[in-house]
Simulated assay, not measured.
Amino acid sequence: MKYRKLGKTGMDVSVIGMGTWQFGGEWGRDYTQPEVDAIFDKARETGINLIDTAECYGDHLSEEFIGRATEKDRENWVLATKFGHKFHDLYERTRHFSADDVRRQLEDSLRALRTDYIDLYQMHTGVGEEFDNDELWTMLDKQKQEGKIRHIGLSIGKKEDSYQTKRAADTGAESIQVIYNRLDRSPEEDVLPSAEEQHLGVLARVPMASGYLSGKYKPGAEFADNDVRHRHDKDETRRTLEMVEELAKNEVPEGVPMAQWALAWCLKHQAVTTVIPGCKNPEQVASNAAAADLDMVSGNHPQSV
């Protein structure tokens, strides 16, 4: 595994992290603690140390799984979670960004994660007045001073990504999390250059484009009703899968799994600190981790990313 500094935080994070939305039950299956423990055992073995979650992945359910899996060696992990959305049911959430609401969310996340501190506490796609809220950022700064939060980050959405990245310093944020993958290069226009200028750490989420870049799906594939991808327009899905098929033919080196290529492709951008793919089992953890050894500059492997 390779590690990079997460912007100004000074934290060394694995270039391959682990996203954990799946533990909340919205990836088409429910997890047990032994299954999650096995995934974390493989993460330890491969050197992955950055774990990204959110209080709305289930009702703190993902955090609870993670807390039990990491409490025996908490100091070895960089735990990143988010605030602002309340889980009610599959794909049903309400937004809660007031200072008082977020303070309660923080305490609930600390309990769920079985920890005294969160390494990276991220605003979860806040917009408008949710973001421009001095009371919120003042409260979070106080929580930093009390040691409950080590660093603050922004997990940005599409609507205000450039604006929020440029305002990161005003909030005390030291990192941004952004959707970035071979199918969505829009952050290259403004967000990634701005992050470089400000020395912000960058977490690239959805690096495999919700699994489209995993190499498992061909044109005509359909997804179950309890799979997040079932919500995509059928024509959009068809076009996306056709594009993926072209990438597999023209850009993915022979003998390299497409999923690993997709992760390494993100990491070749100098602004990106780490990618945070999801995983369903230990085998996927190992496969993801192997992407750290792909050399996307020369096309050879294994080499330094």
Rank of each mutant, 00 (worst) to 15 (best):
K2V: 05
R4C: 08
R4H: 13
G7S: 12
G10N: 04
V13C: 08
V13S: 07
S14G: 06
F23V: 06
G25R: 01
G28W: 07
D30R: 05
Q33V: 05
D37S: 15
I39T: 14
D41L: 14
D41K: 15
E45L: 10
I51H: 02
C56Q: 02
C56G: 00
Y57C: 05
D59P: 03
H60Y: 13
S62F: 00
R68T: 15
R74C: 15
R74T: 15
N76E: 07
N76Q: 12
V78G: 03
A80F: 03
K82D: 07
K86Y: 11
F87V: 00
H88P: 00
Y91T: 09
R93G: 08
R93N: 13
T94E: 11
S98I: 01
A99N: 03
R103V: 06
D108M: 02
R114I: 10
I118M: 07
D119V: 01
L120E: 00
Y121I: 05
T125R: 08
G126P: 01
G128Y: 02
E135D: 14
W137E: 04
T138K: 08
D141K: 10
K142G: 15
Q143T: 05
K144I: 10
Q145S: 09
Q145I: 08
K148T: 10
K148C: 05
S155L: 02
G157L: 06
K159P: 01
Q164G: 12
A168V: 09
G172Q: 03
A173Q: 03
E174L: 07
I176F: 04
Y180C: 12
N181K: 02
N181Q: 08
R182G: 14
R182M: 13
D184T: 10
E189I: 08
V191D: 04
L192K: 02
P193G: 01
E196D: 09
H199E: 15
R205Y: 03
M208F: 09
A209Q: 01
S210D: 00
L213P: 01
P219S: 01
G220A: 10
G220T: 08
G220H: 02
A221G: 13
A221Q: 13
F223S: 11
A224P: 06
D233S: 08
K234E: 07
T237E: 07
R239D: 14
M243C: 11
K249G: 12
V252T: 15
A259Q: 12
Q260F: 10
A264H: 03
H269F: 04
A271H: 03
V272Q: 06
T273L: 01
I276E: 05
P277C: 10
E283G: 11
S287R: 09
N288A: 07
A289W: 11
A291N: 10
A292W: 07
A292C: 06
D293N: 15
D293E: 15
V297H: 01
P302G: 14
V305I: 14
